[in-house]
Write a protein that binds this DNA or RNA. Structure first.
Length: 355
DNA sequence: CATATTTGACCTAG
DNA sequence: CTAGGTCAAATATG
């Protein structure tokens, strides 16, 4: 990866910069209310740009690519052709049902990671992310080499609806405002983001202990500028095709959980690009929960990781939503889209937002 | 009282 | 054996 880069780092940077510029243009367009054609065109360009950049990265296969933002996902997990989501965590289940197949891999389900920057206490955005699903914490573990413990959550409806989706929340030690959320399995429950007003968010405990007043409500008032993803970083680490790869990233948050607008956002994305075709299904599938933004040129991106990414499903995506602010920017290369981009699509005034 | 969280014990892959 | 992941009893919350 370091030695023979099939891509020139400059090209990569350029690609990303271009994306950034385009995003800015898009923002302007949005503000100016220009024709939707133009907007769509811009979106397409942006995606194309990032797609290229990601491809370069993927090809390089460097875990520690220049882009610090990219988090390498530990292992590839393939999703057994088995079900969409149910599969692994239920060790016990599997054990009961068919131990034999589980032999090696413990993880067989689609998995992707999301990086969520949640508020700095000053912004009071802690707990700003929710994905519209109801999660129940079932464990917490101190992980070697990390300052903060990792929390384990599973779908509240695990039992009632056999929804085996789970997620892990790990606070970054470097940037305490960043939470790395790793999802596993797809929601099969019918309680997507749409309905349920997100209960306690994962980090709830922290909010509890720290502050709660200045949290999300504040943002509502601040409305467009902070609320949340100011800078959206999308990092795709391991992608593998996987038809059932569930719903990749939900742009964190409760917000999405309660808004319908994401549809607009999605449709925009989808319309413009064939790129996202593969995901349409899941994207639109109710179960998957609507606001998932797929970033996946399917076939092209997968692989490269080099290891066992067979065909199954090795999907790990990382989304970073930064709400920090204007400058979090990242000189080098973090993919960062300016806030406005999202703002226009997401109303933050919906009640229950960020909760 | 029902449901969610906490937390130490337990299980398993590596 | 270790670290990560899960279970489940105890406890907290509404």
């Amino acid at each position: 990866m370091d030695s023979s880069k099939s891509w020139d780092q400059k090209s990569l940077v350029n690609e990303i910069i271009e994306g950034l510029e385009l995003a800015k243009q898009l923002r302007l367009s949005l503000n100016a209310k220009s024709s939707s054609d133009k907007k769509q065109f811009l979106v397409q360009r942006i995606l194309s740009s990032y797609e290229k950049a990601l491809l370069m990265l993927k090809c390089s296969g460097s875990p520690q690519s220049p882009i610090g933002a990219i988090t390498s996902v530990p292992e590839s997990l393939m999703s057994a052709s088995a079900g969409p989501c149910c599969d692994d965590n239920n060790r016990s289940l599997q054990d009961r049902h068919d131990l034999t197949e589980v032999s090696k891999k413990r993880k067989e389900m689609a998995k992707w990671t999301e990086h969520v920057t949640r508020a700095s206490s000053e912004n009071g955005i802690e707990g700003a992310h929710e994905d519209g699903h109801c999660w129940r914490k079932y464990g917490q573990k101190d992980i070697l080499g990390t300052k903060h413990p990792r929390s384990y959550y599973r779908c509240t409806y695990r039992n009632s609806e056999s929804c085996w989706a789970t997620k892990q929340v790990q606070r970054s030690d470097e940037d305490p405002t960043v939470f790395e959320i790793t999802y596993k399995g797809k929601h099969t429950c019918s309680h997507g983001r749409s309905s349920v007003p997100p209960p306690p968010s994962p980090e709830k405990q922290e909010r509890k202990r720290h502050n709660h007043n200045d949290t999300y409500q504040q943002q509502q008032s601040q409305g467009n500028q902070i609320s949340f993803p100011t800078n959206l970083r999308v990092n795709t680490e391991n992608l593998d095709d996987t038809e059932n790869t569930a719903s990749p990233f939900s742009f964190t948050s409760t917000s999405f959980g309660c808004m319908n607008n994401d549809d607009a956002f999605l449709s925009l994305m989808l319309d413009d690009n064939g790129l996202l075709d593969n995901f349409n299904q899941s994207l639109l599938s109710p179960a998957a929960g609507g606001s998932n933004y797929y970033f996946e040129p399917a076939s092209q991106m997968r692989n490269i990781a080099g290891k066992e990414q067979r065909s199954e499903s090795d999907l790990a995506e990382i989304v970073s939503a930064k709400n920090s602010s204007t400058n979090s920017s990242i000189p080098d290369i973090d993919f960062s889209l300016e806030p406005a981009e999202l703002d226009s699509y997401f109303p933050f005034d919906c009640p229950g937002f960020f909760l």
